[in-house]
Amino acid sequence: MINISLLMIMVATALGLVWLRNLLAVVMFSGIFSLTAASLWVVLGAVDVAFTEASVGAGIATVLGLASLALTRTEHEKRTRVFHLPALIVVLVTGAALIYGTLDMPGWGDPDAPIHTHVAPRYIEDSLAETGVPNIVTSVLASYRGFDTLGETTVIFTAGVGVLVLLGRGRRYPVANPRVAAGGGPGRAPAAPGSEGAAVPGDSGEMRFKAILRVGGKLLIPPILLFAFYTQAHGELGPGGGFQAGVIFASAFILYALLFGVPMARAVAPASVLRGTLALGVLIYAGVGIAGVLLGGNYLDYSVLAHDPVHGQELGIILIELGVGITVASAMMTVFFVFAGQDPQQVD
């Protein structure tokens, strides 16, 4: 069974993670874990999720992990506590509770399980007629449960702004005075001389001289961008949508930054523009909802957006997917630029 073999690979990877001391390997193993999970989901018929996990879990998470390791200048953890009795007891009890819980579960793949007979059938039977979108995941995500997706876009926005708050002004903090409980003045370091984005990694290593990589990269970037637009537009028909498109779009810029240096990439996408687009995507999404209210429907009811309800649904879904794509791409780029824009030399 392919399921079992993939699950076994995941078990091996996860166990490896417990023992590994090299943090670089930890990040890589985590990426492998995500990629294997994505493969499993393709087998299980969840292609949209697989697409997302491959680009996020194996892609963005790995890049962020590597960047953090460079910034914290750590390769190895000090010592590994492979055996930790209290933790082991907690985990065993939790696991036992879960296994106890599985005993009354419907079997794997059982078509008569409650989740296949309640709520879901309507989506499968009526969603095409009601929304005009063949990809059921897209119609549920963007319309039936569109409010969750607005929340999800807000979460990504929060993360983008959050990383700006934490790292946006470059490195600071000579060791703060721990005695000062609060109250401003003492303990706060002056802002680092070059704030946002001015700090640049001296050079992107030997890569700068690797002409082949650069030419290859230049050739790759346009198709990646094109693919991003395709994924954005194609989300109604096949796997894809604003989220995946946003990640792919951002990855083109990340590649560009890796090959030509962060300043070059930042010149194409300046911080102030990214901050604007980061906010814009959320406003588009939430604004479409308000438009629904103004046109006499409920919040996020797209049917009222056009004369024909189905056209309205299609229009609404395209618009909100656009909002998702814009915010996700801006958030990913912001996060990457902020991480990559830190100066690893500046600490102690």
Binding site: D48, I115, A120, V140, E152, I156
Partner: peptide
């Protein structure tokens, strides 16, 4: 067809996770 709802929920959860 595979049930679409878990996919929808997990798409959201993945995003929350990476955030």
């Amino acid at each position: 067809y595979t049930n679409p709802i878990p996919s929808v929920l997990i798409l959201t959860a993945i995003v929350v996770g990476v955030a």
